[in-house]
Design a protein around this nucleic acid. Structure first.
Lengths: 150, 150
DNA sequence: ATATGATACGTTAAAACATATCATATGCAG
DNA sequence: CTGCATATGATATGTTTTAACGTATCATAT
């Protein structure tokens, strides 16, 4: 089986999973929201909001930035998409959301390429540090810049 | 001794430390750079670039945004200042730069208030996760959103 | 003394990113 | 069907960051 086929399957899985999640939580995965999510899935990496505007606009119909931002807000609230603040871009959240794990987005400083890793070990260490800082709860997402080997 | 006095002492310490660091690395802590750094020190928290423009501008002379950004870039390169990507703001980096520790900026989601904690435990856990992701090196800074107790 | 190079800063403009506002449409509960 | 909440369309504006180009300053070389 080609990697392309695998890729396609995973895309479908993600879309189904998104659909299920929304259904179960009474969230409306409207056409625009679904298209934004699909675009992020297919891109395989972080994409800027204005890039999404371009990619989802046709000759006849140009979407307004605010439309994309609204869709992104929805997807982020649903936990399907994560914003990379250091890159001003947006990326799908992989994996089953394990409540106890920290979802770390490693971002390559040069290319912007990202890889997501879930780690309960990091989650625990961060939680401990948070207590020192007087923080009672912390986001389960974080972003770390670095360099990919090779 | 009042907390104010303590505060003043710490400010002086930070400024001296910055001065030393630059001297030792042949970096030029010019007046503008020093003023930007001092302003960040005195504010005690994250400050936006345009805030800095306002605060460092006088009636007769208004600094251009780019001037501030350049000073901030210098200070960031020197490791004296950290950019809070989630807040579009800038904050001094406290503490002796411990090479083995992760410098975590906890950011209160509501107020934007920050507290910096250094943790070798987090550094190690993140390093391990980075290896899983195929990352050979990671930034010693990270930013975590959360909520302050109370 | 004059030229060259390196670095910082000034000035103007624009790119890139994000939100406000108000109008219109669409779904859905009563 | 009606009214209310929610989603989208359209336009404008706000905010943050960088680009491009010129000048000032100072050290060093010719």
């Amino acid at each position: 089986m080609s990697t392309k086929a695998l890729r396609k399957e995973e895309e479908d899985n993600l879309l189904r999973r998104a659909d299920d999640l929304c259904r179960q939580n009474n969230l409306r995965l409207t056409p625009i929201r679904e298209r934004v999510y699909r675009e992020l899935v297919q891109s395989g990496g972080p994409v800027g909001a204005y890039d999404l505007v371009d990619r989802l606009s046709s000759e006849k119909k140009r979407l307004a930035p605010v439309t994309i931002y609204r869709a992104l807000d929805f997807l982020r609230d649903a936990g399907l998409v994560h914003r990379l603040a250091t890159q001003n871009s947006y990326v799908i959240s992989h994996g089953q959301p394990d409540v106890n794990a920290m979802k770390i987005m490693f971002v390559d400083s040069k290319t912007g390429e990202t890889i997501e890793v879930h780690s309960t070990e990091v989650a625990e260490a961060v939680k401990k540090a948070a207590e020192q800082a007087g923080f009672k709860s912390v986001s389960p997402f974080m972003e770390v810049e670095g360099e990919i080997a090779q």
